[in-house]
Design a protein around this nucleic acid. Structure first.
Lengths: 337, 337
DNA sequence: TTGTAAGCGTTATCAC
DNA sequence: GTGATAACGCTTACAA
């Protein structure tokens, strides 16, 4: 039954301090009903035995783990850590540990790992529009929030930017620079992010009387490669676009990188605008004009929503929408006829 | 005592299936001593009740959690995710979840969170030379491995590259290109990584009869900013260097970015060499000449070491050293007199 | 203020 | 092949 070398338990401490086991528990948790003298004695005994309360025991008893699962995809995509890191910090401040759940676990599998009491709550950061898992998990009574992505059929707590509005900002900017042949490098239409950014961009262009023909749309994933491939494809057109809206910064930077390879100078020969404002966007080599999402704010409010729901599972569901903001750097420029 | 809506337990399943609770446990874990018929019945009952075995109960009983803590710093530094992601994957394959432990928890605090049975093992990825925590944790009987960084006073399982040798490769390359005024942007001397890379570089230069005077050394952190600041400082010299070795790729890319700002073309006007070969290094904009560490290999063997130790805590400690390899891209070039 | 004792949900050891 | 039953280490009524 027991494998590893058994370490001191509260019973050992109790024995050493000459008190009951429950007093040890109380003393070490700072229960005010314990006398100063007793607490002192218990703490000494605990220290001398190198006693550390075992989590599993506490978890079982309190039915809480002080752990939160973040369902996250490939950390290697520079976007995700920019959201995970501030969430992790906020969780730490709230006394929660962060546990990484692979985004590949679906339904059955996912439920087993999320609704088994191993976490007090879950944050989904890359839900696809059709995903059932978040709803299923929530239905099991596990506090759940969505960040960055949304779901249609759901009433879960959500923290997102106004993607539609942000994309409109980009369309306005590009049009105001005099561009007419405008392209877009988009992501999977199975994500709310891509869908809303595309819709906002397309609608606002239309408002200005400019179309977004399918030959000027390149659709890929949320990756650097997509940006790069998108540029290759768009530059191969008989009449390449003069401005390109990229679904997000990672893609935009892939585009910038490919433009560099093709000998183009972004901001002069071609306009590139991203979305997110990840930290790389401000690097001198890129100096990417983009839409600031306030990722830290996004992350913080997601965590806040989760912590509130953990505290009060029956509170009303909230959708927090943060306002995007255009960040003008050097990758945009006027259209030269 | 119990807060959240109580969900089905193995006892409920037992009742529903008309068997004992222990049979439920056995059946669901695939114990071969359970008859096919019984297993079927139990599985049905479990499914219909939406039963998922609760981890805390199991953890307490088995004294294992199938969780591993990765002590990690800021995920926003592009290097770390490149190591964390493959470790996370390898851990997943081994049936372990990854839990992120802030690198700020030291000694007391760290012990409380790592030696409390909440993880089956710990991986330290940014240990400082003087750190006691890894040893303390290991002394508590918690399987521990170091990856990327080493400790002097320790016999822990370790997975590292040959940093000294890798830096020698860089020195050889730079010297062979005809450079004589050679600089280095280094990191905190409190890390084995920086110490060994610096030593290897310096020694090999000396071997070629070339000094590394302190005015040509810039020391900072492992960040993009350090690379950028390093370049500013080095270019401000009356006689700037013609080649610069950067402690790692993140720093090198910061340097590249700053050079771009100063109007220099790496590979032509100045040689920059990094270390690690993170994925960004191969991006077209950077095309950084660097030393490949085999981060995935590094990660995999760290996890392998950990899993082996969890299986057999008394096995001999191992230090796995992977061989670095020069990757020639475009940020280096001959010295023009 | 402290002790006693009853869980918490699982696994594992015995019998049968 | 299956069922009792005893852990596992902790928190928390309830009693004293």
């Amino acid at each position: 039954m027991n494998r590893r070398r058994r370490s001191a338990t509260s019973i050992d401490v109790a024995r050493a301090a000459g008190v009951s086991q429950s007093t040890v528990s109380r003393a070490l948790r700072g229960d005010p009903s314990v006398s100063a003298a007793t607490r002192e004695r218990v703490e000494e005994a605990a220290a001398s035995l190198g006693y550390v309360p075992m989590e599993s025991g506490r978890n079982l008893s309190t039915r809480a783990t002080k752990r939160v699962g973040i369902v996250a995809p490939d950390l290697t995509n520079q976007f995700y850590p920019e959201l995970i890191e501030p969430m992790r910090r906020a969780l730490d401040r709230g006394g929660f540990r962060t546990i990484l759940i692979p985004a590949t676990d679906q339904d059955e599998q996912g439920l087993r790992s999320l609704a088994n009491g191993s976490v007090d709550g879950v944050i989904f950061m890359n839900a696809l529009l059709g995903d059932q898992l978040p709803n299923l998990v929530a239905a099991r009574g596990v506090p759940t929030v969505l960040v960055n992505r949304e779901l249609d059929q759901t009433s879960l707590d959500t923290s997102v930017v106004d993607n539609y509005g942000g994309a409109q900002l980009v369309a306005d900017l590009i049009v105001s620079l005099g561009h007419e042949r405008i392209a877009a490098i988009l992501g999977p239409s199975s994500t709310s992010t891509s869908r809303d950014r595309e819709a906002g961009f397309r609608m606002q262009l239309a408002d200005h009387g400019i179309p977004l023909p399918s030959e000027l749309m390149f659709r890929g994933s949320f990756s650097h490669e997509t940006g790069s491939q998108g540029i290759d494809a768009l530059l191969a057109l008989r009449k390449p676009p003069t401005a390109i809206f990229c679904l997000n910064d990672v893609v935009a930077i892939g585009a910038l990188s490919a433009l560099h390879r093709h000998g183009y100078t972004p901001g002069k020969d071609v306009t590139v605008v991203g979305f997110d404002d990840i930290s790389m966007a401000s690097w001198d080599v890129f100096s990417l004009t983009t839409v600031r999402c306030g990722l830290v704010t996004l992350a913080k409010s997601a965590v806040e929503l989760l912590i509130k729901r953990i505290a009060d599972p029956s509170r009303e569901h909230t959708r927090v929408v943060t306002a995007p903001e255009l960040v003008l750097r050097s990758s945009h420029g006027p259209h030269h006829r």
